[in-house]
Design a protein around this nucleic acid. Structure first.
Length: 425
RNA sequence: GUGGGUAUAGUUCAGUGGUAGAGUGCCAGGUUGUGGCCCUGGAGGUCGUGGGUUCGAGCCCCACUACUCACCCCA
């Protein structure tokens, strides 16, 4: 019985891995330009970390975590998001005591959510994310949004839209929630069953319910935007001004409520349209209370997570000329073919010296006919073939064939690599 | 968790209850020193699994499993 990959998990095969590296390379470059440095946190954490950060009532914690008991009967979970782990590392290392703001990023970090996989939604997916600690000003929020838009645009992606909202802070949110809850209670009968539950646990999540009746019931519901305290209001207004200043277009969507409980003030999503509908590529926001919540000092923070698979999905949908991503060339430059098996020993040592000289070079390992070696080299996409034959060897040369022009020339076997370097470049 | 679709060669997929098929890929030959195109041949199948109906099941029925899409939610 053949063993197959687990549900919701995907192998990245050679045909795709160069794209992964290219995307990752650009992400690192963008992060570095803005002063962010890489952090790598473990894939597993104490379950409690996620319960305390994302919130016991969040869907992620309630039903989507990969949770296990380890051999010491500790409850551990594969990380469903990276902010909690980053904050944990920040506190544990004492990094927060150094110069603030502290800017951190991670890329191609595996994340896990135990749910039904479908298009653009896997159980294991990878995120690029950035977190900025100690920056209370909305310029930090704007910096992140700008960076994401720039990055995605640089790949050639279009149809990106930025949606922002403010969900207030502990000063202004309770009053809003009070009013909102009263509003909901009056319309309790119209709500779907999950929203009835939400009403008790986390009423604000009813705002992004897709159920038709719920939408109807909520269409003139009070929104947080109208209840923001002066500080939150000013913060939000400034964020908009920063975005406008550099020409990032956005829309204010008072219904964005993120799935994680730790957010305060700014929340944002970067959305794109696909043939099947809208797809969230990136989501994030401000979490001014989380560091303190997890036992540290009161340090404001803002960050986002971006789904790498989703970015790649969008890139795959682009026409070849629209995709601006530079993919690393992996095809061999030289394939060393030999006329018969006895000559393989010469091919072997030539390949070695070609590789030492920095060429991507390969040879046959199956004892195949010359013709078969040519076919193989052609399938690999080799740019040149080096032919070693008895006649050539007697003369102390090898033949170099340009696969696209079919031109052949003889190269002295001695110092062949440096001679080829001149010809090929 | 709920609902729909699908399951046949490495892969993409045809297949009307009566001999297991094609495209593509792979290997070889046509060409004893030369790739792409062409021609020929070859290898490759427990027809998802288990039951049932039938003289006979890839096909009909039931169950299960896997995959996939959608809902919910999200990256």
């Amino acid at each position: 019985m053949q063993i197959k990959v687990l549900k919701g998990m995907k192998d990245v095969l050679p045909s795709q891995s160069a794209r992964w590296r290219a995307v990752e390379r650009e992400m690192r470059k963008a992060a570095l330009l803005a002063g962010y440095r890489e952090i790598r946190t473990p894939v597993v954490e104490h379950t409690e970390l996620f319960a305390r950060s994302a919130g016991e009532s969040s869907d992620v914690v309630r039903k989507e975590m990969y949770t296990f008991l380890d051999k010491g009967e500790r409850s551990i979970s594969l990380k469903p998001e990276s902010t909690a782990g980053t904050v944990r590392a920040l506190l544990e290392s004492g990094l927060y005591a150094q110069a603030l703001p502290l800017k951190l990023y991670y890329t191609n970090a595996p994340h896990f959510r135990y749910e039904a996989p479908q298009s653009g939604r896997l159980r294991e997916h990878h995120q690029f994310g950035m977190e900025c600690f100690g920056a209370s000003q909305p310029s930090a929020d704007a910096e992140l949004i700008t960076l994401v838009i720039n990055l995605l645009s640089s790949f050639g992606l279009k149809n990106l839209s930025v949606r922002i909202n403010s969900i207030g802070c502990p000063n202004c949110r309770p009053a809003y929630q009070q009013h909102f809850k009263e509003y909901l209670n009056q319309r309790k009968d119209q709500l779907c069953s999950t929203c009835k539950e939400r009403l008790e646990v986390n009423p604000m999540r009813t705002l992004d319910c897709k159920d038709h009746n719920c939408k109807e019931a909520l269409h003139d519901a009070p929104v947080m935007m109208d209840y923001l305290c002066d500080e939150c209001k000013e913060h939000f207004e400034l964020l908009k001004r920063y975005l406008e200043e550099i020409g990032i277009s956005y829309s204010v969507d008072p219904r964005i409520v993120r799935g994680l409980d730790y957010y305060t003030k700014t929340v944002f999503e970067i959305i794109t349209t696909t043939p099947t509908g809208e797809l969230t590529v990136c989501g994030g926001g401000r979490y001014d209370g989380l560091v303190e919540e997890l036992g540290g000092p009161a340090i404001p923070a803002v960050g986002f997570g971006m789904g790498v698979e989703r970015v790649l999905m969008l890139l795959d949908a682009l026409e070849p000329d629209e995709c601006k991503l530079q993919i690393e060339d992996e095809v061999p430059e030289l394939f060393v073919a030999c006329l018969n098996k006895a000559l393989s020993i010469h091919a072997f040592s030539l390949v070695k010296s070609l590789r030492d000289a920095g060429f991507r070079a390969d040879m046959d390992h199956q004892g195949r006919s010359l013709k078969a070696q040519f076919k193989y080299a052609d399938k690999l996409g080799a740019k040149y073939i080096v032919i070693i034959g008895d006649d050539e060897l007697a003369k102390g040369v090898v033949k170099l064939r340009d696969m696209s022009t079919k031109e052949e020339q003889e190269i002295p076997l001695e110092n062949a690599a440096s001679a080829m370097k001149k010809i090929i470049q």
